[in-house]
Amino acid sequence: MLRPQLAWSSPVIKRAKELEQGHWGAEAVNTAVTRTAAAIAASTAATVAVTVVTTTS
């Protein structure tokens, strides 16, 4: 065998069942994507504002 057997403790079994049922962290990924999109939007808005102020001055 190339790898040792996993120690099937209660937390490992619980997590394996969650993964088996499709609970792999999609909520955390969704939060990260939403925050990233908000940061990009804010950065873009700030860049546009600076460009407008610089252009009109």
Results as ranks from 00 to 15, higher is better:
I13Q: 05
I13H: 02
I13K: 14
I13L: 08
K14W: 05
R15V: 01
R15K: 10
R15E: 06
R15C: 00
A16L: 09
A16Y: 09
K17T: 05
K17Y: 15
K17E: 10
K17S: 08
E18K: 05
E18T: 13
E18H: 13
L19H: 10
E20R: 11
E20V: 02
E20P: 00
E20K: 15
Q21H: 14
Q21V: 07
Q21S: 03
G22S: 05
G22V: 07
G22C: 03
H23F: 11
H23T: 02
H23V: 07
H23S: 03
H23I: 13
H23N: 02
G25P: 14
A26V: 02
A26S: 08
E27P: 01
E27G: 14
E27D: 15
E27L: 01
E27H: 10
A28K: 12
A28D: 15
A28H: 07
A28W: 02
V29M: 08
N30W: 05
N30Y: 11
N30Q: 15
N30I: 12
N30T: 14
T31Y: 04
T31Q: 09
A32S: 11
A32D: 04
A32H: 03
A32G: 00
A32Q: 12
A32K: 08
V33N: 02
V33S: 00
T34Q: 01
T34K: 02
T34D: 01
T34N: 12
T36L: 01
T36A: 05
T36V: 01
T36I: 05
A37N: 11
A37S: 02
A37D: 07
A38G: 04
A38Q: 07
A38S: 08
A39R: 08
A39C: 13
A39S: 04
A39D: 06
I40Q: 03
I40P: 06
I40M: 10
I40H: 14
A41V: 10
A41R: 15
A42T: 07
A42S: 07
A42R: 06
A42F: 05
